Simulated assay, not measured.
Amino acid sequence: MSSARGSGRFVTGLAWAVLLLGLWLWGRDVSGGTGSTSAPTTGDIAAVGRPLGVPLPPAHDPLKGAAPQRVEIPSIGIAAPVVPRGLDADGAVDPPPFAQPGTVGWFDSGARPGQAGAALLVGHVDTQSKPAVFYGLSAVRPGERIKVTGDDGTVAEFTIDDVQVFPRKHFDAAKVYGSRRRGRAELRLITCGGTYDRATKAYTANVVVSAYLTDARDPAPSTPRKP
């Protein structure tokens, strides 16, 4: 979104959380270790968690990892391109431009999806006039799958094991950005959540979806051209 109002809304919502990432990176290695539309109202709850009786598959061994090109969450109809993003002048992950509300940003100074560690993907929840790529993110549940296609053609498949909503007052950078289990390939999807506070011009929380690598497919062999 190009308007100052929308930009400020997202920056003070999502980027408030990822600002802590820049500070947290000083002491820990991540790779080892919006507008008038209402956002999904998740409220200041601690976690959606894992419903009883939902079996989760074993973790797949970490991969070499590739720069992500596309992310898919079939259960909520997300299929979006991924672009690399770094930190801005304030030390926050620079999200995709508002002019690209359907694009997901990958923090390219951290882990690549499939590598050991927690790879970070961020996306807008809305723009000034319509929902954006991660608008429905809070609706995912443990056991559902996320597919990430890399620039080498590999497809890393992750299984969601946790969905949490972190209120601004209780945001825990180590829990969000750190690995849940050492040596495991993990994924974090982050967007704004809760409600939009007009007084502070920020969302009251952040939705954080955690997943871990459970399957991987090599690139399909190319068909030789006929002479």
Rank of each mutant, 00 (worst) to 15 (best):
L19W: 11
P167E: 08
Q69F: 01
K226R: 12
A67P: 01
G86Q: 12
V148W: 02
D29V: 13
A216W: 02
R184Q: 15
R9Y: 07
G8K: 06
I73G: 01
D197I: 01
G35K: 04
A202D: 11
G8H: 05
K130E: 12
R225I: 10
R180D: 12
R70C: 05
W16K: 10
R70E: 12
F166P: 00
R141N: 07
V176I: 15
P68D: 05
H124A: 07
S36C: 02
D152P: 03
A39T: 13
T195K: 01
G105I: 08
P81L: 03
V122L: 15
T103H: 04
L87S: 13
R70H: 11
P167H: 06
V30H: 02
S75K: 11
W26D: 12
G77D: 09
G33N: 10
D152T: 08
S38C: 02
D29R: 13
D90K: 12
R28I: 07
I190Y: 04
F107S: 02
A66M: 02
A174H: 12
A4H: 08
D61Y: 00
P219Q: 08
L189Q: 07
L189V: 13
T127G: 03
R141V: 15
Q128K: 03
L52E: 15
L25Y: 05
R225M: 04
A92C: 13
F134D: 04
A199P: 00
K175C: 02
S109E: 13
W26Y: 12
K226I: 06
